[in-house]
Design a protein around this nucleic acid. Structure first.
Lengths: 368, 368
DNA sequence: CAGAGGAGAGAAAACGTTTACCGCCCTACT
DNA sequence: AGTAGGGCGGTAAACGTTTTCTCTCCTCTG
């Protein structure tokens, strides 16, 4: 599947060239260098590694040979003899989303800083492909496999993760879940999440403090833990401020612009009253904004709006969107840090929750 | 640097466990499986590869052993014996940018579809780090090293690329440049670019056709080939439509929101006349939009605006931004396709230019 | 019934490194 | 003067696969 032939053996001649003599074709090996420099392979290896005394004159001869032959060490051989650290694998739904891209950047940065390579793969939401990818990363001897992004977190999900965790553990890799709820104790995995509930609480509380009583909630899909946590946070705030919970203001859908647009338009059409909107994600907020504007309503003059995520464009909207910042890059960095510290033998937590923070811009106005 | 010890040898006990007997600790090898199944390693290998007849009963025994030992093949060993295709390396400034993320997605998709792994690394614009990364990828025996994103393309740049190309070639890797100008003939590299000049031509032509005569051009930084091409395209259109070239309308800067904002505000302040703005990139357009709005000007009612790139948020702005679509994902896909086809022995072009396309939305209005 | 041929399996040689073990030669003590 | 020890360098044994030879049975054909 994932390992194909390097190329068809093609002609018998080509095959022979591959097997027999080295006709300028194949990259040179340490043995070629040794021969050219008139030393043993051990000396070449030691010269290159620099962890063993080598006379200046020998070093020079070796280096000259290395240069003239364009020698590069073969990682696979090196890894086989045990001197290469495993890469960090990042498995996500799709790299293109603004928040996921930041997680990826965080992972890449932290991994690179520690001399690790980052492998990225996208699943497009296909569970089967996720299975394959985890298996593949096991073969790659990845130091850590970081799964990131929302999913429905039902029983099947938990069984799947436990399976991944054990399979990876047996191959010496660590499973890290990013932006996902904790796993049962005993599962060999690390979870890095952020405070969805607290963030949502702050968002709604901000609206209520500004005097709004009827807040249209554009929630995420049921079953998704992050969506449910945000929902909970919203309700917490309602309760804390003594605001009524109104079923007609509580909607669910997915985190797309379209869904935000449709739900807002529908609310407007059916005439449910509200003076503010809390969008479960910034993109949903974008849709809401469009629907509001289309209906001739101004933000924040007529209705206030709060988003969630603080994606890059949030600050560039008009009005600049008040939203909840999620430390996506930090999420990625923390994921690899925890996995790697553990690998090196440091104690590290199995479950950390990063805090979120309300960032106030121009899309909320005090209710009259 | 990039290859560190897998972990400090720590205690002598740990070291011994590593070297000597296999105390449930180290992942199991093909030999363990062979022993458990009571067959030779050759048989295990063949069973797993499935490219050689093995009796049903033997197969079953082997599979049982594989399962119970949680065996996974070691890629490094496999690669050493020549059965693993090299990964695709993507080296970019920063994964976080909306357009680069799409290139990355294209690369990942095409690579994944062909059973290749994708390595991503970011340079943060540091040339030294780019050097290191290219060297690293050479060691990794990457099938292709894709460099993407704008840079200043001076002589030093060309020398650097020629050096990379040769170094990679000697290690059996192919250098692919994405969104960069062609290299001199003879350099073993592949270049995939898109039509900056043509796109810019269309953008300005669209404005001129709508009756605008004074178009503020927010160009990119001089020295960047893409910026210069767009500049050329803009001038082509001016000439083609008999519109005057006015120096005070021709600005350069970088492709940031801030730069767009500042330059537009400056133009407004100094009172140079214009009825339309052509922003060299969508983010720059975002800045222009903000400055225009701040000055009480409406888009497109008072001034028209065209961007470049068609980043995801372009369609979500108010007004939805008319812009030039760049096929970023296609760029990524093409890069790996060309590199891989060549590897397999198919002929493939060394230089392809993808076309861009004007997408008309709501930010341009016919001039009175 | 002899011999050809095929199916199934094992032994061992690569693949390209790193490193544990040994040597050798010199220098510097006692 | 004898020898301990340090600086250099070579030999060869891993590391975990794949694959080429072999070899041994069977089965089928003439």
């Amino acid at each position: 599947m994932t390992d194909e032939e390097k190329g068809p053996p093609a002609t018998p001649g080509a095959k022979k060239a591959k097997r027999r003599g080295r006709p300028t074709d194949r990259p040179s090996t340490i043995r070629d260098v040794a021969a050219k420099a008139g030393v043993s392979v051990a000396t070449v290896s030691r010269t290159l590694a620099g962890n063993y005394p080598v006379s200046a004159e020998t070093r020079q001869r070796v280096m000259a040979a290395v240069d003239s032959l364009h020698y590069v060490v073969n990682v696979h051989a090196k890894a086989l003899s045990g001197r290469v650290a495993g890469p960090i694998a990042l498995v996500m739904h799709d790299i293109t989303g603004p928040s996921l891209a930041h997680v990826a950047a965080g992972v890449e940065e932290e991994a690179g800083g520690r001399g690790r390579l980052s492998l990225v793969c996208s699943t497009k939401g296909d569970t089967k492909r996720e299975d394959d990818l985890v298996q593949l990363m096991r073969e790659q001897h990845a130091a850590a496999v970081v799964l990131v992004g929302g999913t429905v977190t039902d029983d099947a999900y938990h069984r799947r993760m436990a399976g991944y965790a054990k399979a990876l553990d047996s191959a010496g890799s660590r499973l890290v879940l990013c932006g996902r709820p904790p796993l049962p104790a005993g599962v060999p995995a690390t979870v890095v999440d952020y405070d969805n509930r607290g963030g949502a609480f702050q968002a709604t509380a901000h609206l209520l403090t500004a005097g709004h009583r009827r807040v249209l909630f554009l929630g995420g899909a049921p079953g998704f833990s992050s969506a449910e946590e945000r929902h909970l946070g919203h309700q917490d705030a309602l309760r804390a401020h003594g605001a009524p919970y109104l079923e007609e203001l509580d909607t669910t859908g997915d985190y797309t612009r379209k869904s935000g647009y449709l739900r807002t338009r529908e609310a407007l059409r059916t005439g449910v009253e509200f003076t503010a909107v809390f969008a479960g994600s910034d993109v949903v907020g974008l849709g809401a904004l469009a629907a509001l504007r289309e209906a001739g309503l101004r933000v924040p003059h007529d209705v206030s709006l709060v988003g969630f995520d603080d994606v890059p464009f949030a600050a560039d909207l008009t009005p600049a969107l008040t939203t909840v910042r999620v430390p996506y890059e930090e999420l990625g960095r923390t994921a690899v840090r925890l996995a790697l510290d553990r690998e090196v033998g440091f104690a590290s937590d199995n479950h950390v929750v990063l805090s979120t923070q309300l960032v106030i811009r121009d899309s909320v106005r005090t209710a009259d």
